[in-house]
């Protein structure tokens, strides 16, 4: 979301580093302090880069083995029913992640875009729109586990065992995605120049037609990239799924394409379940699932970045 905004705002000119460092007449103490502080700022960049590098290298080196041995069995076999059994098979979780995330997207994106259109094109600065904008921020801050509990109480509980489905998980993920989609879309709609709307009105178009055929198409690349970031975020969530898709994190081993009936599983749930195991065979599958999930999330993010880069090039 933020990166999209950064790329569309024009960069401010920066005084060159040489100029700053060559300041004459600056006392040694001030100069030292400046140097030390600059060093500390650089150190924080280094720390984050090193930590991220460590995590990625560990996940790739430990996960690659199980993913590529007996390729493509990792993607085509169901998960072994006992933790002790060595070897690949993560299809059930890959399918589960894809169908729940996809269903969540189908629910959250139209609602979120409609909400953002209301905020930016209809409500604007009125009291209700301002309240909704505030609540969007509040909703974005609701812990994901609370969303899971909410869907459990609201949807799963009245249906007992039959309530535990991919759909319930998708509801919880959709609740998490909704505020992200609303915010990202509103930011993009804000960037559409007012004179485009005026031109459309001058041609006799109604407000709805202007919104649907002028404003949204103009902002579409940005909206799609915002939605993809929300999808990337949702696909990695674990806490909301614990209560909604199956009885325990490791209860489901068989692939279930049907979101509407039967319990399901997800990559994140498998990572969680296997991380608690002490057996190397289970931990291996955990690393493999982590690698698959990260690859999936990065893919979404990469597509989002490319799209927003193309958008900013087009509008400049």
């Amino acid at each position: 979301m933020t990166s999209v905004m950064d790329q569309t705002s024009s960069p401010a000119p920066v005084p060159s580093n040489e100029l700053l460092e060559d300041l004459v007449g600056v006392s040694g103490r001030r100069r030292t302090k400046n140097a030390v502080m600059t060093g500390l700022m650089f150190a924080s960049v280094a720390i984050i880069a090193i930590v991220l590098g460590f995590v990625l290298v560990t996940v790739i080196s430990k996960g690659w083995g199980i993913v590529h041995t007996k390729f493509p069995h990792w993607f085509t076999d169901d998960i072994p029913p006992t933790a002790r059994r060595v070897g690949p098979g993560m299809k059930a979780a890959i399918v589960g992640t894809i169908v729940t995330t996809l269903t969540a997207t189908v629910i959250a994106v139209p609602l979120g875009i409609a909400g953002a259109v209301y905020l930016n094109e209809y409500g604007k600065r009125n009291v209700f729109a301002r309240l909704l904008r505030f609540l969007t921020g509040v909703m974005a801050g609701v812990p994901s586990i609370v969303m899971g509990l909410f869907i459990y109480v609201f949807w799963v509980l009245p249906r007992h065992q039959e309530g535990l489905t991919g759909l319930a998980g998708a509801f919880a993920l959709a609740c998490l995605m909704l505020p992200i989609v609303v915010r990202a879309t509103e930011e993009m709609l804000k960037l559409v120049p007012q004179n485009l709307r005026d031109a459309s009105y001058a041609l006799g178009a109604t407000r709805s037609r202007t919104t649907l055929t002028v404003v949204i198409p103009k902002a579409s690349a940005g909206i799609i990239s915002g939605c993809l970031l929300a999808v990337a975020r949702a696909s990695g969530e674990t806490a909301p799924l614990i209560f909604t898709v199956s009885v325990g994190a490791s209860a489901v081993h068989k692939t279930n394409w049907n979101v509407f009936s039967g319990p399901n599983t997800a990559l994140s749930l498998q990572i969680y379940a296997n991380a608690k195991e002490t057996l190397a065979s289970a931990q291996d599958r955990g690393w493999g699932a982590a690698l698959t999930l990260i690859a999936l999330a990065f893919l979404f993010t990469l597509v989002a970045r490319v799209m927003s880069a193309r958008l900013s090039k087009k509008t400049q």
Binding site: V51, T58, R233, T238, Y272, A290
Partner: peptide, 19 residues
């Protein structure tokens, strides 16, 4: 640098947990 920060945000929390 912006991409680096965003990349940390993309790593799912359960992966940090596993690590």
């Amino acid at each position: 640098l912006v991409a680096l920060t965003d990349l940390v945000a993309v790593v799912p929390s359960v992966v940090f947990g596993l690590w």
